[in-house]
Nucleic acid binder design. Structure first.
Lengths: 198, 198
DNA sequence: GGCAGTAATTGACATAGGTCAATTTATGAA
DNA sequence: TTCATAAATTGACCTATGTCAATTACTGCC
């Protein structure tokens, strides 16, 4: 599945995604050592309980992370789409993933193995800094999400979702958006109707 | 405020708090280079918008992190008590804190400046690993909290709080626990009554 | 193109938790 | 100890969201 015709676009993407401080040499190495992997809609990239060995950069498609709660409900905890990274816990700890990653659309991803990342961290201080920032950003995202749930009702959370993820609204089944927002599908359906009218 | 009589207890505490892989030499350096700082109940350790320069290990007392929402409500976002670290964002980024840290009880803390930590990270790989773990644990805590809000109602969240923070229930004003749990003080008061009866 | 299995919509109803205001209880300074 | 202020409790009422079930609309496969 490793195709060469997209090489130029990938170079562009890497330059967009990483800070300019990261050396061109590092970016080239990433491109050289990473692999392109395609998945079909519905395919599982990583199961809850498995240990991850790589992080992914999405070139095309959408993935979601989800877990099954005590009542057996499927709860979506995150979405990622084009030009975003996705990963699970365990880069440092080596621990098991607490959630499953599934493709909601056909996907093409750049797969960056942990070993390559660890190697590049050693070589390039700016890259190491970037990886640290990815962690800090994750913390920021989680805090923002927490705030959303602490302070706002379902309507506001849905509005936020529409603002934050406009690309997903029409490409993701309603039930996944609902569990992500912490409401029932029926409630989200009603919210949608209200919002469209007003 | 740096007293020597507690030296032995602090050594003990540091050994409890850090993994055994961290060298004794590092622990001694921490003890030597850190300072002990006392705060009175109600004192602010760090204001939202300021840049932190240190992390703290609580020897005695309780602190809370909070921010003011758009409606002017004081929202508690975290508690820390004895033998726990507290810190804000910005160790890597140097960014401003998004919340204020206040003492809810008289506090005695061990203050570890960023510069010392950065130095020790260079010298002791096990210590560096520990700092990475502190970050990962923070992510874990945030995810758990998010789950709590996505899946459980106010009653369950309060039960969880009682299990998770038994030391705080009677030492922290109800209104702070309420905002931490995302409910109104009146609601928490009623929950409490219900729980005591059953 | 029809059929089976999901997903989404909608209605009727129940209820957790919010709002607002009054009252009681704690807390801390003089 | 008293007084002033803030915190907690409680009641009456309201509303957002959940529950459950029926109906309709998609989606993909033969």
């Amino acid at each position: 599945m490793t195709g060469n015709k997209h090489t130029a676009q990938i170079t562009d993407l890497l330059q967009t995604v990483f800070d300019k401080a990261v050396s061109l040499n590092t970016l080239m190495k990433i491109q050289e050592l990473s692999t392109i992997q395609s998945f079909q809609k519905g395919e599982i990239i990583l199961y809850e309980g498995d240990r991850a060995t790589a992080i992914f950069l999405i070139l095309r498609g959408i993935v979601r992370g989800y877990y099954i709660d005590e009542q057996g409900n499927d709860i979506t905890k995150c979405f990622s789409c084009e030009k975003e990274f996705f990963a699970t816990e365990g880069f440092r700890t080596g621990g098991e993933s607490t959630f499953t990653i599934e493709c909601i659309r056909d996907c093409v991803c750049l797969k960056l193995s942990y070993s390559i990342i660890r190697e590049l961290i050693q070589e390039d201080a700016a890259f190491s800094q970037q990886v640290g920032l990815l962690f800090e950003r994750e913390v920021g995202r989680l805090e923002a999400r927490q705030k959303l749930f602490s302070l706002y009702d379902a309507t506001d959370r849905y509005r936020f979702f529409c603002r934050e993820y406009p690309a997903l609204i029409k490409r993701v089944p309603l039930k996944h958006i609902a569990s992500f927002l912490g409401v029932r599908p029926s409630t989200l359906s009603r919210l949608r109707k209200k919002e469209i009218v007003s």
